[in-house]
Nucleic acid binder design. Sequence first.
DNA 1: AATCGTTTCAACCGCTGGAGC
DNA 2: TGCTCCAGCGGTTGAAACGAT
Length: 300
Amino acid sequence: MSEKRGSNKNEEMELRRGPWTLEEDTLLIHYIACHGEGRWNLLAKCSGLKRTGKSCRLRWLNYLKPDIKRGNLSPEEQFLILELHSKWGNRWSRIAQHLPGRTDNEIKNYWRTRVQKQARQLKIDANSAMFRDAIRCSWMPRLLEKMGSSQSMPSLIDSNATATAAGMIDQTPHDGRPPQQFSNPAMQYPFENCSSYEPSGSENHSPSTSSGSMTLPQLPYLSSSPANSCNGFTFNPFMSGHCIDHSGYGLDTVDLAPAPSSQLGSSVSDYSMATNNCVDSIGDGLWNMDELWYVCKKAT
DNA sequence: AATCGTTTCAACCGCTGGAGC
DNA sequence: TGCTCCAGCGGTTGAAACGAT
C-alpha cells in the first residue's frame, strides 16, 4: 500500500498542471487524430503528455475540439441559455447540448459572470423566482428584439434540430412532455406569462404547452394583461431604445440606481420613454437594469 | 506610465453514476 | 453484491486581461 502510494506520488510529481503549451496541444490533437476520443487515462499515458486523463479530456472538449465555437454568444444563444436554465437550472452540460459548438464550461462561465453579476447588483438571489421573472420579463424580450433585428436565427436553426431559439425547444427526450414551440419567438413569445422558477430536477413542473406556442405559468402578482405585456410593462419585441451597452454579451452594467418613484407609478411606455434616451450614449445592447429593477421591485 | 481593482475564462477539484469484473 | 476504474458533471479557483484612476 505504502509502496503503491509512493509510486503514485512519483507519478503525480511528474504530472504537469496549469495552462497547456502549444506542444501539448499539438500532441493531444495528433493523438486524437490517430486514435480517436475517449479512454482518456489511456490517452494520457500513451500520448506522452504528462497530464491526467481528466485534464486531457477537458482540454480537448473545451478548447481543442474542431467544432468548438469561439467568441461572444449570440443573442439567440443567450436566449436559449436563459430559457433552458429557467427550466433545468444548473444543468450546464444539458444546456450545452442545445448550443452547438458551445461547451458546458463556457455556458457556466457566462451564467456566473454575466447573469449572476446582475443578480448581485440587484442584491437579489440569482436563483430566486423574482430574478428569473425579471430575466424573463425584461432581459429575454430584449434578446428577442435583438434577434428580430439581426435576423441571425437561421444559424441556430440550421445547426440544431432539437432546440432553437427560433422554433422548438425539445423537451420530449427528457421528460416525455410535448415540446414547447414558438415558431417565431420574436413575434410569438408570450410575455404575459412570466415563469416561476423550476429547480433542476423538477421538470414535471415545466411550462405548459398550448396550441403550439410556449405558455408559461402565470405568476400570482402578474396581471392577466394583453399579449406582450408583463407585470405592467408592455414588451414590444421590436421596441427599441433601452439602456443598452456595447458589449458583445449585452449584459454589462448600465445603471443600478432605482428609477425615481415618479416613474414607478407610470405606465410602461412612460417608463420606457424615460429610459430610452440612454440608448444613444450607451449603444446597442440588451440589458436595462432600471427596468429589471422595476420588475423585481414590483414583484415584492 | 504605473498601480490597483475588476472581469473573464481556462483549468482544477471533488463528487457521482455507470460499466466491468 | 461489492469493489474498482473511468467518464462526466458542476462548483471553484487563480492567472491573465482589461479598465479605471
